Amino acid sequence: MKFDARAALRRCGSTVLALIMGVSLVSAEAAANDAPPAKELFGAKDLPMQAAPASFGFYSKGCLAGGVAIPTDGPTWQAMRLSRNRRWGHPAMIALIERFSHDAVEKIGWPGLLLGDISQPRGGPMLSGHASHQIGLDADIWLTPMPQRTLSYQERETISATSMLDKSKFLTVDPSIWTPSHARLIMMAASYPQVERVFVNPAIKKKLCDTWRGDRAALGKVRPIYGHDYHFHIRIKCPPGSKGCKDQAVVPAGDGCDKSLAWWFTDEPWAKPKQKPGAKPPKPKFAKLADLPKACALVLNGPAPASEQEATYGTAYRAPAAIPAAATSIEAVIEAAGEAPLANIPVPSPRPGLQ
């Protein structure tokens, strides 16, 4: 058999190339595993990326470019927990909050909004507290009315929001705390056409189902979820032209006062996950920068404005000189909340689909 030197060299070269590629892949994987969690990277940014406003990715997996901050104080709102630096959002979200706060005061007599978390300066995963709020299109509104004085910095850090739940009864709204004005506030938030969902505690959703006598068209947007008894969570749709932004699935038809709500009043949602005897609890996995949309690496490392004052109302956004009147759809929604319960109470069923 004649030895073919060239063929041997080709085989040797292929083997070496495969080894090099294998080592490169292992090295890349090791580097990815050693990379810091994305929440540490985004949580360390004090100012937004200076760019045209854009939301990239999904509410729980993305980032925000060109974000703006709502002022800590406005005529009808005050921002809470200022040390978190989470009062940033897409200009569309900030504009809605301002309009909502004015409408709530003028239309239903709510004293003003206390604002919880919106987003970090560049969005992304947060160091604590939220899975969503990553693309500047989510905002938490306290169910505690704004006091008629300016809160101090220390008060904003330490005051607790008020839970609407009766501590002595399972998933029941406390009638001594809950008022028809709370119902009107939540339903007003859901009435805006750009609002995709309003998340509340299941007990609050049930209370609305049982007592709301106004237009129920927006009630389907009010979705039950864990927690959310101290505040409610507004989520808006991806703004027009947001090519890199992914909307959530359309809310199912109806008012949501059906088996999907009844499921929350069974044992299943609250049952602890079963583990095999002796099994170690799984280690939490935190998203890395590589797990987010590719644009987020550019957002993370992009240029920042010179100061927060410049970023609060940057060139991409200016506070409106006058808040526009509420849409006629809101007028149809804001009606007195009665106390008459619904005739039909939903029957428990298997867990529904995504909220």
Results as ranks from 00 to 15, higher is better:
residue 252 P to Y: 07
residue 58 F to P: 05
residue 244 G to M: 09
residue 70 I to P: 09
residue 314 G to S: 15
residue 253 A to S: 07
residue 171 L to R: 08
residue 68 V to M: 10
residue 302 G to S: 03
residue 212 W to H: 07
residue 168 S to M: 06
residue 120 Q to I: 02
residue 177 I to H: 08
residue 227 G to I: 11
residue 87 R to A: 06
residue 132 S to C: 01
residue 74 G to H: 13
residue 238 C to P: 13
residue 176 S to V: 00
residue 261 L to H: 10
residue 65 A to M: 01
residue 264 W to D: 06
residue 103 D to S: 07
residue 160 S to R: 03
residue 18 A to R: 13
residue 137 L to C: 09
residue 49 M to A: 12
residue 3 F to N: 03
residue 231 H to K: 15
residue 198 V to N: 04
residue 47 L to R: 10
residue 247 D to Q: 07
residue 164 M to G: 02
residue 279 A to R: 11
residue 218 A to L: 12
residue 214 G to E: 08
residue 106 E to M: 01
residue 65 A to R: 08
residue 255 D to E: 15
residue 28 A to E: 13
residue 238 C to D: 10
residue 274 K to E: 14
residue 173 V to R: 05
residue 122 R to K: 07
residue 290 A to E: 15
residue 228 H to E: 12
residue 94 I to A: 00
residue 351 R to T: 08
residue 195 V to F: 02
residue 241 G to R: 15
residue 81 R to N: 13
residue 252 P to A: 10
residue 193 P to T: 13
residue 353 G to C: 12
residue 320 P to M: 00
residue 17 L to S: 12
residue 140 D to L: 12
residue 348 P to G: 00
residue 93 M to K: 09
residue 100 F to V: 09
residue 118 I to C: 08
residue 181 S to E: 12
residue 34 D to K: 01
residue 194 Q to L: 15
residue 340 A to G: 07
residue 258 D to N: 14
residue 162 T to P: 04
residue 75 P to H: 08
residue 244 G to F: 09
residue 89 G to H: 05
residue 233 H to V: 12
residue 118 I to T: 11
residue 176 S to N: 03
residue 182 H to S: 03
residue 341 P to F: 00
residue 24 S to L: 07
residue 4 D to W: 08
residue 345 I to P: 04
residue 113 L to M: 08
residue 4 D to L: 01
residue 344 N to W: 05
residue 326 A to C: 07
residue 277 P to F: 06
residue 35 A to L: 03
residue 232 F to A: 02
residue 208 L to P: 15
residue 37 P to A: 10
residue 52 A to W: 10
residue 306 A to Q: 15
residue 299 V to G: 00
residue 262 A to E: 06
residue 165 L to I: 02
residue 322 A to D: 13
residue 161 A to E: 03
residue 281 P to A: 11
residue 298 L to H: 05
residue 151 L to G: 12
residue 212 W to I: 04
residue 152 S to D: 11
residue 73 D to A: 06
residue 107 K to Q: 01
residue 166 D to H: 03
residue 272 K to M: 01
residue 93 M to S: 05
residue 185 L to V: 04
residue 113 L to N: 08
residue 157 E to S: 02
residue 148 Q to Y: 00
residue 247 D to L: 06
residue 158 T to I: 03
residue 346 P to N: 14
residue 42 F to C: 09
residue 268 E to W: 09
residue 32 A to V: 08
residue 163 S to V: 06
residue 80 M to K: 03
residue 246 K to G: 00
residue 164 M to I: 00
residue 331 E to T: 10
residue 99 R to C: 00
residue 203 A to T: 11
residue 299 V to I: 05
residue 30 A to T: 10
residue 127 L to P: 03
residue 64 L to G: 05
residue 61 K to Q: 14
residue 39 K to R: 13
residue 349 S to R: 02
residue 307 S to W: 09
residue 160 S to N: 02
residue 151 L to R: 11
residue 202 P to W: 07
residue 248 Q to P: 00
residue 332 A to S: 12
residue 247 D to R: 14
residue 27 S to Q: 06
residue 174 D to C: 04
residue 252 P to K: 02
residue 205 K to Y: 04
residue 309 Q to H: 06
residue 68 V to I: 15
residue 56 F to H: 09
residue 225 I to C: 09
residue 217 A to T: 13
residue 167 K to R: 03
residue 268 E to A: 12
residue 213 R to F: 01
residue 118 I to K: 08
residue 317 Y to I: 03
residue 248 Q to W: 07
